[in-house]
Nucleic acid binder design. Structure first.
Length: 423
RNA sequence: GGAGAAAUGGCAGAGUGGUCGAAUGCGGCAGUCUUGAAAACUGUUGAGGGUCACACCUCCGGGGGUUCGAAUCCCUCUUUCUCCGCCA
């Protein structure tokens, strides 16, 4: 959520920068500013009314104490109107504030200046590319065929017990999955991230904090009976550790990593591009989250990008990095780098990580602040990234490492799998 | 799931209707003393809104109510603890 103060001070800048997201918000901004003014005016009126009745109450208290009951009762009469007035003003204030918040919730984050113009994923800017695409032998298969051939992932079994998009990993497939999780977590903790295991369901406040709620697309699974949401990513529980916190400046940065399953309804996405592991309702992901000082958040973002690079390099997968254009940027993000691996048998790029700086957007929603040595309080910056999302990495490994003899396990994973080949 | 108790500032912990944003202790910060440090002593130290700055307003788990006035009384929700039941 953008800060009202910021919108007030940088109105034109907000409008022109949001135009990068192909949004025309000048009217909305006017409404916001108008509501904000009304809110403050109402607050001032309410404060004055309350001040007056506080004064009278004290007077009554004094009179009663000194035994002047008659005079006290006389003063009492004066408070009736004030009470009515403050009640009305209070209701109006709540209403205006709610309207303002609702409007602010509809405004996405202001893109960073380096975000390229554009409307779709076609306009994303390739900023880096590395690794070579392996030459596959004749008869190379897509991962869903390989999964069947070696009996390591069972989509039908998952469909039977749950539904489409909930695969069952079997035998060496399950073991490889576990190996990847351990490997990623080790890489992250080696880089200074503290490991967490977190709940896989969150409450509404947490969803609002990261911008996952309001959930207009119905992306999250909702458990109505208990008013909880299945997490779409570990970002939600982990970032919300710090909701309503006032950190000391020296506590920054906070580096966290967590493995969780992720649940996404993905309503309306069907077709060839969602085959196999390409898009699932439940998948595993290891996430990294950072809470940063505003002065260092972009440095941190680049550091996260380098970190993910290092992992892909070790796995020896061909990958590229995209800087997302304004039209493709997610709601809360100011700047996002997507990582894609090349899946050889499908001959397409698969997104396996998304690394973003949210600046103060989430911090403002969740009141995540820090205090410097002089006692000044500021919103912190939040960042996160996948390191990494499992299923597509698995898909790429299966496809890129296939040989006529079987699937070769990447060197770095062998200590974790305990085998070097799936055949 | 049933019965009971509790939730106060960074922490501990007073406060049961009136000048309480809240005693006291610890912690933090600043100073005195000291070559330096510790100890001791002195001062200071919650958050949000609002203002050029004051004033002023709000906040004692969340929400609602009673009252001229609520940390204090009532209702409700959440969480924690104790006991019982169930259970990986």
């Amino acid at each position: 959520m953008l800060q009202v103060q910021f919108i007030r001070d940088h109105k034109e800048e907000v409008i022109s920068k949001l135009a990068k997201r192909n949004l025309e918000v000048s009217e909305l901004i006017e409404q916001v500013l108008q509501l904000d003014e009304e809110r403050r005016a109402t607050q001032t009126q309410l404060d004055a009314t309350l001040a007056e009745s506080n004064k009278l109450s004290k007077e009554i208290g004094m009179l009663f104490k000194s035994g002047k009951a008659a005079e006290a009762n006389e003063v009492k009469k004066k408070t009736a109107g004030l009470k009515e007035e403050s009640k009305e003003l209070g209701e109006r204030l709540n209403e205006v504030s709610a309207q303002l918040t609702e409007l602010l919730y509809t405004l996405p984050n202001v893109p960073h200046e380096s975000v390229p113009e554009g409307t779709t994923d076609e306009d994303n800017e390739v900023v880096f590319e590395e690794g070579s695409v392996p030459e596959l032998a004749e008869g190379a298969l897509p991962h869903w065929e390989l999964a069947k051939k070696y009996d390591i992932i069972d989509f039908d079994l998952g469909a039977k017990i749950t539904g489409a998009g909930f695969p069952v990993y079997k035998g060496k497939g399950a073991r490889l999955q576990r190996a990847l999780i351990s490997y990623f977590l080790d890489k992250n903790t080696d880089a200074g991230y503290r490991e967490y295991q977190v709940p896989h369901v969150v409450n509404e406040a947490s969803g609002l904090g990261t911008g996952s709620l309001p959930d207009k697309e119905g992306q999250m699974y909702y458990i109505g009976q208990d008013d909880l949401y299945l997490i779409p990513t570990a970002e939600v529980p982990v970032t919300n550790f710090f909701r309503d916190e006032l950190l000391a400046e020296k506590e920054l940065p906070k580096l966290c990593t967590a493995y969780t399953p992720c649940f996404r309804r993905e309503a309306g996405s069907y077709g060839a591009h969602v085959r196999g592991l390409n898009r699932l309702h439940q998948f595993d992901k290891v996430e990294i989250v950072r809470i940063e000082h505003p002065d260092r958040s972009y440095e941190a973002l680049e550091g996260m990008v380098d970190h993910v690079k290092g992992i892909l390099r070790e796995l020896q997968l061909p990958y590229r990095i995209l800087r997302l254009c304004g039209g493709d940027l997610t709601f809360a993000s100011a700047l996002t780098y997507d990582f894609e691996v090349f899946s050889t048998a499908q001959e397409r790029w698969l997104e396996i990580s998304s690394v973003s700086n949210f600046e103060t957007f989430q911090a403002n929603r969740m009141k995540l602040r820090f205090k410097d040595a002089d006692g000044n309080k500021s919103l912190a910056h939040t960042l996160n990234g996948s390191a990494l999302a499992l299923p597509r990495v698995l898909a790429a490994i299966l496809e890129n490492y296939q040989t006529p003899e079987g699937i070769v396990i990447p060197e770095v994973l062998r200590p974790y799998t305990g085998f070097d080949m799936i055949s």
